[in-house]
Amino acid sequence: MTYLGEFEQLILFSIVALGDQAYGVAIRESIEERTGRAVSSGSIYTALGRMQERGLVSSRVERAGEGPGRPRKLYELQPAGSRALLSAWDTMQSMAAGLVPRLERMVEAADG
C-alpha cells in the first residue's frame, strides 16, 4: 500500500478539485483557502516531484495565455494516485469512525 503524508494528501485533493487547471499557484491558493495554511511554492513542487517519481501524478509544461507567457507546470492525478488518496481517506475515516463525538467532548472539557 502506498503511504501518503498529510501534506501529500492535501496536494492531491487540490489536484482533484482543480481538474485540468492544477498547477503550482492554483494548488497553493487552494490549500491556503481551504486550510488557512501558508505553504511555499517550493515545498509544493518538491512534494509533487517525489509523487511524480512514485507514479502518483503526471505533469506537463504549458505557457500561460497566448505567446511567450509564464511557464506553468500542470499536474494530473494518475490511477495509482487516485487509489492511494482514496485508501488514505478510507483509513482515516475507519480510524475516526464513532470517535468524533467523543473527541469533541474531550476538547470541550479541556476548554472548560
Binding site: 499557484v25 497553493r28 511554492s41 509544461v61 509564464r70 511557464p71 506553468r72
Partner: peptide
C-alpha cells in the same frame, strides 16, 4: 517555473 509563480502570486 517557481520564479514565474512567485511573480504570479
Amino acid at each position: 517555473v517557481l520564479l514565474a509563480e512567485f511573480d504570479e502570486l
